[in-house]
Design a protein around this nucleic acid. Structure first.
Length: 143
DNA sequence: GATGAGCGT
């Protein structure tokens, strides 16, 4: 568990909690909830044409830097594209410039919707911690 | 031969 993984996990847990009920010490968190500001080398690519495959997606982004991984979400049954995918860059800066340059731009006639990818959760359902009113209870979510 | 926001077989 890296520090950032821990923080992102924490963000996903507290994002469902009304902000006014949370201590002021974590009011900075919403900036991580906005996909546009989340620092990552992996991009979520939405708005893909059904006919875009992983090879053409990689070709469309490889001019911005070394592409470490490309995935397209396919329907389990039919095998058709679900219209979104992921592009992971070796360098975070390349991911940012690719996002800035390609977000809203067309690929095969469809405008791309690009944001930074959420961390894929490899466990079960996320458990939302129950917050109390005491300071000690609030600090429990940092463990 | 379909569909159009979303976060991955």
């Amino acid at each position: 568990m890296t520090m950032r993984n821990g923080i992102e996990l924490l963000v996903r847990r507290v994002s469902a909690i009304p902000q006014h009920s949370i201590s002021s010490s974590i009011h900075f968190l919403p900036q991580f909830c906005t996909s546009s500001a989340s620092p990552s080398s992996k991009l979520f690519i939405g708005g893909l044409s059904w006919s875009v495959d992983e090879q053409s997606l990689k070709d469309a982004f490889s001019s911005f830097g070394e592409v470490a991984e490309v995935r397209i979400a396919y329907d389990k049954g039919s095998g058709r594209s679900r219209g979104f995918g992921f592009v992971d860059f070796a360098e975070e800066g390349d991911a940012l410039s690719a996002k800035d340059a390609m977000d809203g731009k067309g690929l095969l006639g469809r405008p791309l919707r690009i944001s930074f990818a959420l961390e894929r959760v490899r466990g079960g359902p996320v458990v939302v911690p129950r917050l109390g009113k005491s300071k000690r209870d609030r600090e429990r979510i940092f463990k």
